[in-house]
């Protein structure tokens, strides 16, 4: 009789602690604003898949410096060119990574840089065309050592 109540108390206690630990990351982590940044960039316009090719490693051993490259399929003439490309990271403390700006004088819409990724996550590139249409590509990167720690 005594032992069953004690076990019951332990199970109950364990469940409470377990729940608190599991619940913590969700409540403690600030919301990543990647989605809001895309909305602000597109002004709510719909984004189609395609035209953008995002190049990132499948696995990044060091999240402090992950090579990122992209190309956007566009003739880059005065009539049809890429205006800007927004890159966001869905799993970083903040979503923003960079915004690249192009003109018809750029000649080709491509660029590469090195970025920080805190953890395994999706990286999204959204291209804005001069006619107001938007295209995107998403790549998942597995990160072994995060790049935003202190």
């Amino acid at each position: 009789m005594m032992s069953t109540t004690r076990r019951g108390a332990l199970v109950l206690g364990g469940a409470v602690i377990g729940g608190a630990v599991l619940g913590m990351p969700r409540t403690a982590a600030a919301k990543n604003d990647a989605e809001d940044l895309i909305k602000a960039f597109t002004g709510g316009a719909s984004v189609a898949k395609g035209k953008v090719k995002l190049d990132l490693p499948d696995i990044a051993e060091n999240g402090n410096t992950v090579p990122l490259a992209f190309t956007v399929d566009s003739p880059m003439t005065a009539d049809a060119h890429v205006v800007a490309v927004l890159v966001v990271a869905e799993g970083n403390p903040r979503g923003g990574v960079a915004t690249f700006h192009f003109t018809s004088d750029t000649g080709v819409a491509e660029a590469s840089t090195r970025i920080r990724l805190a953890q395994t996550q999706n990286v999204v590139a959204v291209a804005k065309m001069n006619d107001g249409s938007f295209f995107s590509d998403t790549r998942q990167v597995k990160v072994t050592i995060g790049g935003c720690g202190g």
Binding site: N64, T65, V66, A69, M76, A89, N92, R94, G96, V97, A98, F100, D105, T106, G107, V108, E110, A111, S112, T113, R114, I115, R116, L117, G147, C148
Partner: peptide, 14 residues
């Protein structure tokens, strides 16, 4: 801030 230290940029122009 998500750009790595010692920022590297590669691009093309006409």
């Amino acid at each position: 801030p998500a750009i790595s230290a010692n920022p590297y940029m590669q691009f093309k122009f006409k």
